[in-house]
């Protein structure tokens, strides 16, 4: 959501320069007074922490100890830190698991609710409900649903499959957390796709139908090309969000990411390493820098894939 509007704002800069000249006369201080609160908040609580994260990553700063410059020591330590590699692996797996589902499923859902049949407004709203709920609520609901004795296992037992340890097996746990992320994101991306689908010319579908294309064929040859740029947008948004996953895994696997920490994600590791009175701020900042770098790389990767297909 955040990344996309930057393009729209940067393109519209030119329109604002056509302000008539006589409006320029005004108290010289007032524009800055208007912008000051926003600039202060953003400067102190976003940009300054960003810069100090970069700086701290080269120090051995702790919560209560200012720390000294240690060069690349933190990054060298990362290479030999097993927990870091586990975190990187899990966060990467999360992207690979969640993004395809969040690009495709909400599109199918949007197609399902696109047609204005009676009661469709209710369904659209209902499908959006998980989006407005807090991730804590969502996480705890699913912890109970997937519990050893919870609803899902009761149903599985009733149909003879038997109980499954969704929250005890390392991989099933990660998979369950991914499913929860997808479940919570479905409605949000569905709305994005609905807006995109509204712009698909009806004639294209009609022409394809006349040519004898079936539902699946029309989906692949008409719908997908028409909403491709939206799919790229959803891919970019969801991959960045998935790599930074914290709450779902924290709630479902516990603060330590499972018994031996094998379900830890990178942001969980940042939180665990850097907070508390003994927090290793410098080392946690180095992990954060890795998060920045991968996030930017993911964005560039998705956008580049988009451009290549355009050419």
């Amino acid at each position: 959501m955040a990344s996309s509007s930057s393009t729209s704002t940067s393109t519209s800069t030119s329109t604002s320069t056509s302000v008539p000249a006589r409006v320029r006369r005004q108290l010289p201080t007032s524009p800055w007074l208007f912008a000051a609160p926003g600039l202060l908040v953003v400067g102190i609580f976003i940009l300054y922490p960003f810069v100090s994260t970069l700086i701290n990553s080269f120090t051995d700063r702790r919560t209560l100890v200012p720390g000294e410059f240690v060069g690349l020591a933190n990054f060298r330590e990362l290479l030999h830190d097993e927990m870091f590699w586990i975190g990187l692996r899990n966060s990467t797996l999360y992207v690979l698991g969640v993004v395809p589902a969040l690009v495709l499923l909400p599109l199918l859902l949007a197609l399902l609710v696109q047609k204005n049949i009676p009661g469709i407004g209710f369904f659209r709203s209902a499908f959006y409900t998980p989006v407005v709920a807090s991730i804590v609520v969502v996480g705890l609901i699913w912890v109970w649903l997937l519990d050893e004795r919870g609803l899902v296992n009761s149903l599985l037992e009733a149909i003879g499959v038997g109980r499954v340890g969704f929250l005890s097996d390392q991989w099933l746990l990660l998979l369950s957390a991914m499913a929860v992320t997808v479940w919570k994101g479905l409605g949000y991306y569905m709305i994005i796709y609905l807006a995109a689908l509204a712009n698909v010319p009806r004639e294209l579908h009609e022409a394809a139908a006349v040519d004898g294309a079936g539902t699946v064929r029309r989906f692949l040859t008409v719908t997908v090309p028409a909403v491709r740029s939206t799919m790229v947008l959803v891919g970019a948004l969801s991959s960045v969000a998935a790599f930074k996953v914290f709450s779902e895994v924290y709630l479902m696997a516990g603060p330590n990411g499972g018994p031996a920490g094998e379900d830890t994600t990178l942001v969980m590791l940042v939180q665990r390493t850097g907070t508390g009175l003994t927090g290793r701020v410098g080392y946690a900042s180095a992990i954060s820098v890795v998060v920045f770098v991968v996030t930017v790389a993911l964005m560039l990767l998705v956008l580049r894939a988009d451009r290549k297909e355009d050419a």
């Binding site: 990344s3 524009p31 953003v42 976003i46 960003f50 994260t53 960045v240 930074k244 940042v270 920045f292």
Partner: peptide, 27 residues
Amino acid sequence: GRRVATLVFILAMLVPVEGIIIAQFTT
């Protein structure tokens, strides 16, 4: 400085909050 001010907000929007929580905490 209006363009600079706009740029400040755009940059701030792009910063992944999850990556700066420790520095926000020390701030």
